[in-house]
């Protein structure tokens, strides 16, 4: 072995090949099967996609680095489940490009935060977290409510998402800006199209409380309110396990 190495280390290119080969095995064995073994991601009938407004909100969540302090992955541990809800299933982040499972909980897990608090609470909390949770260490995001949401290019965003595998239809892509506006403006003519394209269960509300004036706050709250509600699969599985 050492004699072999004594000869190998005299040839740079052979050494390079050996390193690439030896280092390549682990990743290949662990990653490639995740694409081919079908049980890796559960198949559920009710999984829905993010609306344009939720995509925009998710992008704000990413932009502000929320994932650095909040995980979106409830582990299969008793205390995780009792604190945050049924443990996360792979299918729940099937359309998450990229995933936001996170690695740190400076703040609590958000995988099932949707519909747990009212829109008003979420807005007040984002404007100044210490108004509603005095001990909080989260930064204030009051400026989100002052920043109009950029909606014109949401169709391009959804087209890119379709290219990586999210099943958006041509109609969804074509109507993206209108749908984003409509979801946060329930009294506008655009609102009807949102439920038509994304289902009746879609939240259509003035999330930040200012109908007709869509800000980044609306988008972020719309995203937070859908977390954990893209499919009921995790709750169904928990109920079945309980029986």
């Amino acid at each position: 072995m050492f004699g072999f190495h004594y000869r190998l280390e005299r040839h740079a290119l052979r050494f390079v090949l050996a390193v690439v080969l030896v280092a390549g095995i682990g990743g290949f064995v662990e990653i490639a099967p995740l694409f081919t073994i079908s049980e890796t991601v559960e198949t559920v009938p009710d999984m829905r996609v993010y609306t344009p407004l939720e995509v925009a909100g998710r992008n704000i969540y990413i932009r502000e680095g929320c994932y650095a302090c909040h995980s979106q992955m409830i582990r299969t541990l008793r205390d995780d489940v009792e604190r945050y809800g049924p443990y996360s299933l792979a299918v729940e982040s099937k359309y998450d490009h990229p995933m936001l499972w996170g690695s740190k909980r400076t703040g609590p897990d958000l995988a099932r935060i949707g519909a747990k608090y009212s829109d008003e609470w979420q807005v007040a909390h984002l404007v100044n977290p210490r108004d509603v949770v005095p001990e909080s260490k989260m930064p204030a995001y009051a400026w989100l409510a002052r920043t109009p949401l950029k909606m014109g290019d949401l169709g391009l965003h959804m087209a890119a998402l379709r290219r990586v595998g999210v099943p958006y239809t041509d109609e969804m892509i074509a109507n993206a800006p209108g749908d984003a506006y409509g979801q946060a403006s329930p009294d506008s003519p655009y609102a009807a199209g949102v439920t038509k394209r994304y289902g009746d269960a879609t939240n259509v509300r003035a999330f930040a409380g200012q109908p007709g004036h869509v800000t980044e706050m609306d988008a972020l709250v719309a995203y937070l309110q859908i977390l954990g509600h893209l499919t009921d699969a995790a709750h169904v599985q928990q109920a079945q396990a309980a029986q």
Partner: peptide, 9 residues
Amino acid sequence: YSAFSGVQD
């Protein structure tokens, strides 16, 4: 947008 999603990502 990342080419991978969810568990593979």
